[in-house]
Amino acid sequence: MSKPRGRQAARILAALAILPALAAAPAWADELEDLLEDVTGQYAQAYLAPFTHSFGPNLNSGIFHTAAIPRSRLTIELGIKATATHLVEADQSFQKVIDGVDLSDYDDSVAPGTTGYVVMSGPTVFGDDETPGTVTGYVGGVQVFSQETIEGLVDTRFSPMAVPQASVGGIAGLRATVRWLPELKLGDFGKIKVFGYGLQWSPNIVAPTLPVDVMVGFFNQTVEFGTLIEADASTMFVAASKAFALATVYAGYAMEDSEIDVAYTYSGNGSTVGFTAEGTQESRVTVGATLNVLAKLNLEMGHGDLTTYTAGLMFGF
């Protein structure tokens, strides 16, 4: 295959890779909203915990795949980053206990003023997608009501995400990176918006004798899925890399934060439920490698409170 035809084939493959990710996201989000409408905010917070805690770390992954930034040679890259947080098995189910509550607030069959405790348990959003959870009320060790709730959305230990990414660099050791999708209106679900921006700078331009390429940078992102989810994530990082003939190995350290707002209508009483979940991960170490043949294919692992794996496919020069 000639080089131009090879590049064209690679571009087509990249396009094919991104389309399923974009198509699947609203379908999952739509299905998730349908599920959440059947549960209270307290249940939803526990049910979504693996998702809300991994969403930020996923967003903050895959932002770079080399620390090398030319002093004055223009570089342009465009591609996709696919990330997944590997969850522990325990995150596929949950149990939340709320003590000292008026049980009539949770079940109409209970006389008002009946004080007891509520046990919410079942699959999380990434748990068993066939078995529903339960909300059970107790007074003195005796069950006074039990309600069936919702199943998991998808049975997996990986919380996935894919975003398109582009960068322009090579001016005074700077590289600008963006993640962006045009506002997409997707039927009943609403709009999807993705926007992120960041800047990286290489100290190698003032210290050219360093044995490795070094880079510092930051990145901020906002993602919206209809009215259901709005997430913000930001990270500051330092990274180093070493280029070899066909590959670059890199490592980095990042400080990060994230938060996610969830809003939906609880069908039980028609009330609007809204809550904010702060991401627990505040820092991570990243190691990875980039294979540079026709395109740049990188694989990396980030480890902080959560472990994320990222694969990226970038085209450009």
Partner: peptide
Amino acid sequence: VLGGCESDATAPQDPTP
């Protein structure tokens, strides 16, 4: 090998009272 670095649990696992 580093994959042995497991994520922390994030979902609540309250014990039954």
